[in-house]
Design a protein around this nucleic acid. Structure first.
Length: 662
DNA sequence: CGTCTCCAGGTTTTT
DNA sequence: CCTGGAGACG
């Protein structure tokens, strides 16, 4: 393979530096993925074994894309190359070595919904009044503490007892939360040097993509693995760090420089994606951030068109404008649907746009929002599977014990929880005991119901844990539960909804079947299936029929993607930058977010800022985003409809914008 | 004792 | 607009 044929000098330098620590600062659109692909292909060509390489990414999509591209470049089957997200890697380590910390390999993984339910449950046990507890806030606090990005401050201290109980419950349920997937591997490696040694021996070459999005804990994990052989390559762009709320800390770039002083540093600054106009706008915007590594992105792409800024009356107008613009440009510019990206700050902003696209008959795909696996009906089935895999998982047992209804209600559960607390055992154990106990505190009717429930679980546990034909067993389970009858009863007024929901379950079962039959699935067991789907948010299974559609998504979801034509909707104060972020003092991150949005565009960028917008129930006046002032004058063509000019003029900001236009 | 119905409250980004 | 909790009914 001749690298210099495909890569520019900087890229070539990065791709050929295999030994020793390497820091690559890769600007937006600088051919990062290409460089990584060739770097990996080059490594394999140099005789490095697939099994010696560990590549860590942030999203499943990125992992899949990287593997696909390396496969395409080398033409090899990648049987033992590890390309995985941090969390998926954590699962692997935990399944491999979790026993060292007392975990069984059927552990459950809790997402933040489960986490919230567990916190609620623990708070109930500790008799903490519900109204004093903001579940999601406490959940974030716990996550922050576990990820070492928050300390036990004054206001946090009041939750110490709750936290300790939360942790104890997780352990008792043989469950881990997302933070544990990083933390527990670190603990395993710190407490069991032999395990660490084994992993260091195995992975001689470690690579991290989107390094600016790693958390402190993730960096610690990577450092542990790479400390001895020091073949650690990290690739990132501090200007695209947009996940600080989830613990991402681009200061890790500085830490890396400190921990690996002999590192080489390479900057990729040539942009192959966007026109001069777009790149200039992006550069000038991001220059307003104080805290960044100096770099100057440049492009050779000439002949670009102006960025255009429109001010629709409200979000319905905005959506219609975008839909019409797409229709018109398809003909004019000879573009196809998938050349368009519509980016928004929050998921809530997609609905008006969806409606307009539907009305215009424009096929679209939407990513983000509640994922397929979070839908209630799917989650119900998954909860059953989790309980079958791990009966001590109280959170999931609670979710299914009365769904569909079997007359085991609030009072019954209170009795059972009391019993479980008293014997300090799991609910499942308490149920099993109550079923046969002579002095059972339950009514005969409840005992009979519990008996049926447990027998049913036993039956399906046996079926699902023995190898093979999972999909069939799940289908049978759904039939036995009469979930269809349950849905019909639940949505009497709306049979369509019931049918749609059942359709989702059918789809879910088909997914199991496909996964089960896929020869690439290493371990087609219930455990590995459950672990896998917890870590999938987007429905990445459905990528075949998604071609030829307009892409509607949040800016976060758009990172790493590019489109010929990009619309950024809702470029308004309190949205970009988001009000909550500004309150928390994260304006710089919001600027980076806008930077990411702008740099997705190859040829043409449209920005829209509504005059009015419906918030909750009422209409509010909206103002254009202050970031618009940071774009260079003359680059942005502004379209203010003449009739609108007087009424809003009172808004001084708007007047300022208008003045600049003339 | 369990279920149904109505009402209030709340929406940043996601592995 | 959807969810979770409180109170009425069966």
């Amino acid at each position: 393979m001749n690298l210099s044929q495909h890569l520019n000098n900087r890229q070539l330098e990065a791709a050929s530096a295999i030994e020793g620590p390497l820091l690559i600062i890769a600007g937006a659109g600088s051919g990062k993925t290409k460089m990584i692909t060739y770097r990996m292909a080059h490594m394999l060509e140099q005789g490095i074994l697939q099994s010696q390489i560990l590549a860590l990414t942030f999203t499943n999509k990125a992992a899949k894309e990287m593997a696909d591209r390396v496969r395409a470049a080398t033409g090899k089957r990648l049987t033992s190359l590890t390309v995985s997200t941090f969390h998926a890697f954590g699962v692997k380590v935990l399944r491999d070595k979790g026993r060292l910390l007392g975990y069984h390999d059927n552990f459950s993984i809790y997402d933040q919904v489960d986490r919230g339910e567990l916190i609620r449950e623990v708070a109930r046990e500790l008799a903490i009044p519900r109204e004093t507890l903001d579940i999601s806030k406490v959940g974030n606090l716990f996550s922050g503490i576990k990820g070492e990005r928050r300390a036990w401050g004054e206001e946090a201290k009041q939750y110490t007892a709750l936290f300790n109980e939360y942790q104890a419950h997780l352990k008792a349920y043989n469950a881990v939360d997302f933070d544990d997937l990083i933390l527990l591997p670190i603990r395993i490696f710190e407490e069991h040097p032999a395990a660490l040694e084994e992993y260091r021996e195995r992975f001689h070459y470690v690579m991290v993509d989107e390094f600016q999005d790693t958390s402190l804990a993730q960096y610690k994990l990577v450092r542990l693995l790479g400390e001895t052989h020091r073949n650690l390559c990290v690739v990132g762009d501090d200007d695209q760090s947009i996940y600080s709320w989830r613990g991402a800390n681009y200061q890790n770039i500085v830490s890396f420089e400190r921990d690996f002083p002999e590192r080489r540093e390479i900057k990729l600054e040539q942009n192959y994606r966007s026109t001069k106009q777009i790149l200039q706008a992006a550069n000038s915007l991001i220059a307003h951030n104080k805290d960044r590594k100096q770099k100057e992105l440049w492009t050779g792409i000439e002949g670009g068109k102006a960025i255009e800024l429109f001010f629709p009356e409200n979000e319905v107008e905005e959506a219609r404008f975008i839909a019409e613009m797409i229709r018109a440009s398809m003909l004019r510019e000879r573009l196809t649907y998938d050349d368009f990206g519509i980016l928004v700050r929050t998921n809530g902003l997609t609905s008006a746009i969806e409606e307009a696209l539907l009305a215009e008959n424009i096929p679209y795909r939407i990513s983000g929002g509640t994922s397929f696996f979070q839908r209630k009906e799917v989650k119900d089935v998954i909860s059953y599977l989790r309980v079958l895999a791990n009966p001590d998982d109280d959170v999931n047992l609670l979710r299914v014990i009365n769904t569909p209804r079997r007359g085991l209600g609030r009072r019954f559960l209170e009795t059972m929880r009391e019993l479980a607390d008293r014997k300090s055992c799991s609910l499942y154990t308490a149920l099993s005991a109550a079923r046969y106990a002579a002095d059972s505190p339950l009514s005969a009717k409840s005992v009979a119901e519990v008996g049926d429930f447990l027998s049913m679980l036993d039956h399906y546990r046996e079926r699902l844990l023995s190898r093979g034909r999972m999909a069939e067993s799940v289908k049978s389970l759904v039939d036995t539960l009469d979930y269809w009858g349950f849905l019909v009863a639940e949505y009497q007024k709306n049979e369509k909804v019931a049918r749609w929901k059942f359709g989702n379950i059918t789809r879910f079962i088909e997914m199991i079947e496909r996964w089960e039959r896929d020869p690439d699935t290493e371990d087609p067991s219930l455990f590995s299936f459950l672990n896998r789907i917890t870590l999938i948010t987007r429905d990445d299974d459905a990528d075949d029929d998604e071609r030829g559609k307009v892409n509607l998504m949040t800016i976060h979801a758009a990172k790493g993607l590019e489109f010929e034509m990009v619309f950024v909707a809702g470029v308004e104060e309190n949205i970009i930058p988001h009000l909550r972020a500004v309150e928390e003092g994260n304006t710089e991150e919001e600027r980076r977010l806008f930077y990411v949005a702008i740099t997705r565009a190859k040829q043409k960028l449209y920005l829209t800022a509504c005059r009015k917008r419906k918030l909750l129930r009422d209409w509010i006046e909206a103002s254009p985003s202050p970031f618009l002032q940071e774009l260079p004058e003359g680059l942005v063509e502004q379209h203010i409809p003449p009739k609108e000019v007087d009424a809003e003029e009172a808004k001084d900001y708007f007047a300022a914008l208008k003045a600049r236009l003339r």
